[in-house]
């Protein structure tokens, strides 16, 4: 059996999109577990909480982050997350998944170390599959 991503984290306020990704992950059994946050603030609260009680199982292997969200957007989350990610003592791969095709956004995202790549919505099934396979290696 091939290796699989353990825990995947989606930070996105578009429930329809999140449900679809969930379906794909289930149908293709791309990863073992999935956690979803509606915005950056919710996700950040979670990461700050587990800092006090580090358990590798509760730390995601891969994060799919949206940019445009209420309360705390993707940029602000990134800024805060970059400050604490080293304390998490686990390699976390972060992809930005956004419907923004603004070149300014794309350049800005790619210039941030924490960001592995920038995916423009709509993501394709193949794209999702290949990312999960690639990152599982």
């Amino acid at each position: 059996m091939r290796k699989k991503i353990g825990l995947t984290c989606i930070i996105d306020d578009d429930t329809m999109y999140v449900n679809l990704v969930k379906k794909i992950v289930e149908a293709k059994s791309l990863c073992k577990n999935l956690m979803v946050f509606q915005n950056g603030k919710e996700a950040l609260t979670y990461f700050e909480a587990i800092l006090t009680n580090l358990d590798k199982k509760t730390i995601p292997d891969i994060i799919f982050l949206d940019l445009n969200m209420p309360v705390m957007d993707g940029w602000e989350f990134l800024e805060n997350f970059t400050k604490i990610k080293n304390k998490l003592e686990k390699k976390i791969i972060l992809y930005i998944v956004s419907s923004s095709i603004n070149p300014v956004d794309i350049e800005r995202a790619k210039s941030i170390n924490t960001v592995k790549d920038y995916l423009v919505k709509p993501v394709t099934l193949k794209e999702l599959e290949s990312i999960f396979l690639k990152e599982a290696l």
Binding site: D14, Y17, L20, I24, A27, S99, K121, P122, V123, L125
Partner: peptide
Amino acid sequence: SHNLRSHTSNLSLLVQLIEDIEDPKDKIEF
């Protein structure tokens, strides 16, 4: 462009899913 894109993105993902999935029951749900 921004607001329409979020829906069309979902639509395109959904259509891919429908094409990809064999089980007719799942297809109907989608």
